[in-house]
């Protein structure tokens, strides 16, 4: 479903007025494959290249080297075709229209993605129920709490029934209750509908409760790729997941 082959993205950073800037590699030589139906946690310290990877997957950033394929498509060249098959949620930034009630944002998305009216209605009813949107679906997005907004964003990303869902820190800043409801929702989505999910997070609770497979990126390269059990086995027994990840983050420096 997702395929990266030695993908890289570098940025020219100008430190001064010199014409030649320094080349910073946000991601370099990154290769991995995610099969349909997998639920993968994508970990890494701040600035490791997580968001850059995600942005290459949905066609926001064009890779400067290597090959990226999502659902068989080159994201930067077939961006609009891919958009119908991928759902994206940014925890730090809403994709909804600020001044519009959720319901109107959804209606607009239905038109942009050309979702059939009846299919849309069934899906929205389903999402309204599972994400408990009923209480605030007529409220403008700017007046929603973070937890409500995140549920709205999730629904918006799923209205067109994408094969792949990419989540960039979806639980950031949420309280325990909101977190657990979003986790339950994501697990059901993955097991019941078979949606492939790639999730980046700093909340290791997300990883423990949701991900069968974990990838860890640092300095733009893959530092670990395996099951959660295999990840835990890299550290002495009785370590918590926090210990394990801390070891990996600091050990690779």
């Amino acid at each position: 479903m997702i395929e990266l082959d030695r993908a890289g993205r570098s940025f020219k950073v100008k430190r001064s007025l010199k014409l030649e800037g320094n080349l910073v590699h946000a991601v370099r030589d990154l290769s991995f494959t995610v099969a349909p139906g997998e639920f993968v946690g994508y970990l890494g310290p701040n600035g490791a290249g997580k968001s850059t990877t995600i942005k290459m997957l949905c066609g926001i950033l064009t890779p400067t080297s290597g090959r990226v394929r999502v659902a068989g498509l080159d994201p930067s060249r077939k961006r609009t075709t891919l958009a119908r098959r991928i759902g994206v949620v940014f925890g730090q930034r809403t994709t909804l229209w600020w001044d519009l009630p959720l319901r109107d944002s959804f209606e607009l998305i239905r038109h942009l993605y050309k979702v059939d009216r009846n299919v849309f209605k069934t899906r929205l009813d389903e999402l309204t129920e599972t994400l408990d949107l009923g209480g605030f679906i007529r409220t403008p997005v700017r007046q929603l709490s973070l937890g409500q907004r995140m549920r709205g964003d999730l629904a918006a990303a799923l209205l067109h029934a994408p094969d792949v869902l990419v989540l960039d820190e979806p639980t950031i800043g949420l309280d325990v209750v909101s977190k657990s409801s979003i986790r339950a929702f994501l697990r059901r989505l993955n097991t019941e509908q078979g949606t492939t999910v790639l999730l980046t997070t700093h909340d290791l609770g997300d990883i423990e409760r949701l991900c069968r497979r974990v990838m860890l990126i640092d300095h733009g390269r893959l530092a670990f790729d395996g099951t959660l059990d295999e990840l835990m086995a890299t550290a002495p027994e009785q370590s918590t997941i926090e210990d394990v990840v801390t070891r990996l983050y600091t050990g690779s420096r």
């Binding site: 942005k55 949905c58 066609g59 926001i60 961006r79 609009t80 075709t81 958009a83 119908r84 991928i86 994206v88 940014f90 930034r93 809403t94 994709t95 942009l112 993605y113 050309k114």
Partner: peptide
């Protein structure tokens, strides 16, 4: 603001 990202994930030019 980086909000251009949002437009790039939509299936519209």
């Amino acid at each position: 603001a980086g909000t251009f990202d949002t437009m790039l994930i939509r299936p519209v030019s």
